[in-house]
Amino acid sequence: MKNLTAAERVAIARHPQRPNITDYIDGLFTDFFEMKGDRLCREDPAILGGVALYHDRPVTVIGTRKGKTAEESIRCNFGMPGPEGYRKALRLMRQAEKFRRPVLTFVDTSGAYPGLEAEARGQGEAIARNLYEMSRLTVPVITVITGEGNSGGALALAVADRVLMLENAVYAILSPEGFASILWKDAARHEEACGLMKLTAPDLLALGVTDDLIPEPEGGAHLAPARTIREVDRALSRHLAALLKESGPNLAAKRYLKFRKMGVSQSKEAAPPREEP
């Protein structure tokens, strides 16, 4: 398990039988009630969200939805949300704050959908708004990266107090194919890109981008979904218990500092500007 290359982990993360949002909802929660629509124009099936009980505590659950069958995949646009999906997610997060419920998000997406209508309805604005609002939520927010977490499309659900990652999940600025095509104008060099991008769970834990790594069964989560879900449960309950001890404003303040520190340049720190002489 320890010797998997980044490219092999990408393949496992994308395995069609990997547990998806529906499996996690069935395995971790009871009484799930799905809530649809952004209340502006549309329902986006690429994001699934609602309220449920987690160990008898009401929580808001939100996750990107990749289908397992061809039909389901088409219906949920292969897990690539549009702005309506992100706006629905934000609506549910605001509701979570109103009812003082923790927010648990599950991320598995190749990215936000790059389509004409998505652009016309403000894909960029929708993602930006989520980052802005999530940074100041006063309820606990935990994200689990379960498969692929690519681009702003993943981050828009991942400004969390704790970002947990399954052992073979990947989290990156964009897909290795896109990365290779932008940097070298050659998407075929994606395996080489995987090696350089630092997108695996151990890499990201070391970089301080994620907070914990959830072990997977040998060969990948798809080989033993029930065991994987148990591991996710164990990690989730541990982190949630710790966060529930904190006050709302404290959570928001700590979350801010966590992201504030990311990528602070170690180079020459500039002196504060001089005051008027």
């Binding site: 940074s135 702003g152 981050l155 400004v159 990156a172 997108l199 979350r255 990528g263």
Partner: peptide
């Protein structure tokens, strides 16, 4: 060339 840390700047500036 800065990969995921470039992505995190979106969260940092928005926050």
């Amino acid at each position: 060339q800065e990969g995921i840390l470039s992505l995190m700047q979106m969260a940092k500036t928005s926050a």
